[in-house]
Amino acid sequence: MTVSFGWGPVAARVLAPAAACVVVVDVLSFTTSVGVAVEGGTAVLPYRRRDATAAAYARENDALLAVGRPRDLAQGRKLIETATAVDPARAADPSVPLKAAVR
């Protein structure tokens, strides 16, 4: 059995036709996002559960819950990649679209 590794959608298209199984691992974008956030001075508070206790944990720590806001996912990635500053209070308000929190 041959094991091959690739990077990105081009590699997936090249490797997939000859593969019995293709596994996609998307950890680098997460770790990169955390790294960029921390380097920019943002505190990251990990929490292992994706249930109602996560929201309570975020509230107890005056934090923004980073899951469950799909409308902000693409915008958040762009803001992190470009190190764009946002107003923390507006970014934490679920009723405010993330792009509206840009300073």
Rank of each mutant, 00 (worst) to 15 (best):
M1V: 08
T2Y: 14
V3M: 09
G6C: 00
W7M: 12
G8E: 00
P9I: 14
R13I: 12
L15D: 00
A19E: 05
A19G: 05
A20M: 10
V24L: 11
V27H: 09
S29C: 10
F30P: 12
T31G: 03
T32N: 04
T32L: 09
S33D: 00
V34G: 02
V36A: 08
V36K: 12
A37Q: 13
V38P: 09
E39P: 14
A43P: 10
L45T: 13
R48W: 12
R50H: 08
A52G: 05
T53E: 10
T53Y: 10
A54I: 06
A54N: 06
A55E: 04
A55S: 04
A55G: 04
A56I: 13
Y57I: 00
A58W: 09
D62C: 09
D62R: 14
D62K: 11
L64H: 08
L64M: 09
L65F: 01
G68H: 05
R69G: 07
R69H: 13
R69N: 11
P70E: 03
R71F: 09
A74G: 15
G76H: 07
R77E: 09
K78L: 15
I80M: 14
I80D: 07
E81A: 12
E81F: 11
T82Y: 08
T84P: 03
V86T: 06
V86M: 05
P88K: 03
A89M: 12
A91L: 00
A91S: 03
P94F: 05
P94H: 01
V96Y: 02
P97G: 00
A100E: 15
